[in-house]
Nucleic acid binder design. Structure first.
Lengths: 105, 105
DNA sequence: ACACAATACCTCGCAATGTGAGGTATTACA
DNA sequence: TGTAATACCTCACATTGCGAGGTATTGTGT
């Protein structure tokens, strides 16, 4: 899908992916892939960003000899999703503006 | 509204603003302002970009001593709006993913 | 006459961010 | 021995919205 359209969705998608239960990078990409594709470099950049912003916390673990970092959403992260939800009214009004049919033409 | 969310909408909004009838920069901003705010520098950048991409054409006129440039949407521009419309299914599925309630939690 | 808003266009540098290319390391399987 | 899968990461690059700033004309208030 259009890269510009993605920009407003990716952050909040990642948050949504760890909302239900803590998850890790590799799994987040797999879970999101039916809805939205993203490269690994993008995801790890975003995870770092969201951590710095305090929207999630990290906990490193060892799993079958491999490092695995679990991400946990914070209250602020949940707030971010809520904000997104509220902003969606605006988005839909824009969508309607774009797709309206100029009946007279 | 969130600047990242805007990125996917602005181009197509501008096209929608000139779809009904040819319009010019200053008026486009006014027309769109109830739906989405954008600075002049943004708009003129976008108009230039869309012109280069062949999604609209320009016609300079004189109006009460001031230069006024009218923009006209091309077939490709209409196609861009159509593409956006079709991509919206994907966007809505992402929206649902983000806002779903984890019933069991 | 002077100041200021409105109309109408433009350029430039900055900051944010998705991506491909590339890197490191372990486990699983043919 | 080699390749895929798992799992993490860095870096340079291109795109793009925006603020700051610029130019010019017309209209309005003092």
């Amino acid at each position: 899908m259009d890269i510009q359209l993605k920009r407003g969705l990716l952050d909040v998608c990642v948050l949504a992916a760890i909302k239900k239960e803590d998850s890790y990078g590799y799994k987040i990409i797999k879970d999101m892939s039916p809805y939205i594709k993203m490269s690994e470099s993008t995801l790890y950049t975003i995870l770092k960003r969201l951590e710095i912003a305090g929207l999630l916390t990290v906990r490193a673990t060892l799993h079958e000899g491999r490092v695995r970092k679990y991400y946990h959403i914070t209250r602020a992260g949940l707030g971010r999703i809520q904000d997104f939800k509220e902003e969606w009214r605006e988005v839909m009004s824009i969508y309607k503006f774009v797709t309206r049919e100029d009946s007279g033409k």
